[in-house]
Write a protein that binds this DNA or RNA. Sequence first.
DNA 1: ATAAACAAACAGTCAAGACTGTTTTTAAAT
DNA 2: ATTTAAAAACAGTCTTGACTGTTTGTTTAT
Lengths: 219, 219
Amino acid sequence: MDGVTTAAKRPRRSQEERTLETRGKLIAATLDVLLEEGYLKLATQRICDAAGVSRGAMLHHFRDKQSLIVAAIDELLVSATAEIRSQADRVRAQEITPEEFVDYLWFEHFSGRLFYLTLEHVTAARTDDEIRAALIPVVRRFHLALDEIWGALFSAAALPRSRVATVLNLTLCLLRGMGVQTVLRPDDPAYYDDLRGVWKIMLRAILDGRVRLETTGRS
Amino acid sequence: MDGVTTAAKRPRRSQEERTLETRGKLIAATLDVLLEEGYLKLATQRICDAAGVSRGAMLHHFRDKQSLIVAAIDELLVSATAEIRSQADRVRAQEITPEEFVDYLWFEHFSGRLFYLTLEHVTAARTDDEIRAALIPVVRRFHLALDEIWGALFSAAALPRSRVATVLNLTLCLLRGMGVQTVLRPDDPAYYDDLRGVWKIMLRAILDGRVRLETTGRS
DNA sequence: ATAAACAAACAGTCAAGACTGTTTTTAAAT
DNA sequence: ATTTAAAAACAGTCTTGACTGTTTGTTTAT
């Protein structure tokens, strides 16, 4: 295995390329292992095994375990934002209905990977000041991006522009709550279909103007 | 400090009394420490310190750490059920409105202790088959009790009896989702008031019959 | 005297960061 | 163009502390 053989097998990569590749592997592996093992059992050796990278290399690129996790969550939310935006564009173009968008959000994000990863990092953040401080800006960017997406989503005359984001955020809260429940209420898809069905009826009533949202006194 | 002095200070307690007291202390301490530290940092020594009981005694009464936690969650949900039932009785007696009930659920349970403890055990259960298997029956009892409470709650002519539980479960999912968000979106009570305000408007529309829920096709 | 409740010590496991060593790339010197 | 030195990327080992369940010992109730 001399220099000639090595050069023939693999072109010389710049430091930047090497860095991007290693970081990318670590971030992807972190999300996979976090989903599979949970935060409680998330060991750096396990991540590195999955990434095919040493712990020394991991620590070269990320100050500590927590820094790696925060970077991974950031990447997760950036990706999710792009995917949601893409589907939202289809709602606006009237290729899919708002009801179908709700189904998309449920089946593609909130009853699986995105939400379970959210559950893990949110729960860890609740009792750890450092994690929480690191994640609040990350999540705030996600919320702002969603609000921007929601603002451009609907043009229903019956729904004031200022209410659009509220309704969509309420939709997301419903789906998060359902996501929480899936953990200890599995094998009951009818229950979740039922909830979602009722929600769609409510959403349709709002979009059609049968329920008005202007006056939201604090009551 | 001889036997006579001890007897004079504290009456002789039966083994059963001692057991109930020790178990009670451990269970209460578990919930307190779980809320404060999270599942990730929940150490049995910390629980025992808080309970004023030795680890040996803890292990005498509970097979292992997990058994203690499951017993504590069971107790938590039994207590919450009783409290929710008591408020629901006041709704039925028309002492408080359904809207006020929603506020009660939010402020007393889903924006604080009950929900945060739920977050902890649900997240731990997601990736641990044993915990999940132990908690599913516990949580099922909670769900059944809630459905029974909901079934007796409203007598709105416009809302079919079969739909009452769905609407209340939908309410709880919304509140759970909001509870999840409070962790990384703190210091924004107006946001949560807004969401809750919109839901109350929708709830009122359902109760008043302006939105009908009979046909909930699976769409 | 015996059993149950309780306490403390023991033993083993595991994980993260610190640390040391190696390989690859880049820049400077020749 | 080649060599050398430095920097960056990467790998592997060590250290330390924390944790849980097991075991042994003590106290209280029957």
